[in-house]
Amino acid sequence: MTVLWPIAVITFKEGIRNRAIYGISIFALLLLGANLLISSMIMQEVGKVAVDMALSTISFTGLLLVLFVGINLMAKDLDKKTIYMVLSRPISRPQYIIGKFLGIVLLILTTISILSIFAVISIFMVKLSYPGYFPRFSWPLILLSISFITISLILLSALTFLFASFSSTSFITLVLTIISYIIGQSIMDVKALVEAPQAAGIKVSPVTVKVVQAAYYVFPNLSIFDIKTQAAHGLPITLSYIFWAVSYGVVYTALAIIVASVIFRRREFP
């Protein structure tokens, strides 16, 4: 831990200093302000739309953070060859990877906390303006949903480490991460669709079904962590579901980081 901590702190500081953070914050602020505007157009379930807006903003902004700040932090060392300086120190390559990852986790936690404060304020303001339109509203579910979003973002950034461990430029890492994110978010719906294609009136070849079923086990199932609808409508989430979802996130993240360090250990630098 004593070896990991300095790397984590350096990574975190580097991330906070990154100008992209300002852009992301302004974007989040604008969207949360739009929350007030859009909520005024809804007739019945204002609360649902306000929660939707707030949670989607947190999720989307976190995604931008992972894609454009997180990847940069990892890839910059490789792109700019500063990694030689780090690796000449008495730390192993897996330690380097884990330290960096911890730094990014810290960055995600900080950003999400700040965003959550804004989100809570915006929901609170909408609630003050339309107090009668929040029939099934629950703060605990909203906080649970935010925690789930955080877990899924941490999982996604673990994936960026996996991709960065073998790709030569940060751009490839970015593209691979975006692809995995899209697949991860939709794989459950796609699987449901190809297994019962008549619902949408389309035809699917048996090969596609097999490919999708294989992808289902390879790519992370990010939609597990998407409980925004439940949070928006105050629908119950069981404790066992929370337990299994968190376990899934931890196991997949650990797998990705371990595979990343194995590949990274064998990697040769020119």
Binding site: D52, S56, F60, S186, D189, A200, D226, K228
Partner: peptide, 25 residues
Amino acid sequence: PSPILKIMSLEFDGIASDYTFLKAL
């Protein structure tokens, strides 16, 4: 078709639902 829309909206189906509703309105 709705299943396609659901896949395309990724994790943002709540907000996509709000959007399509507002479009209708």
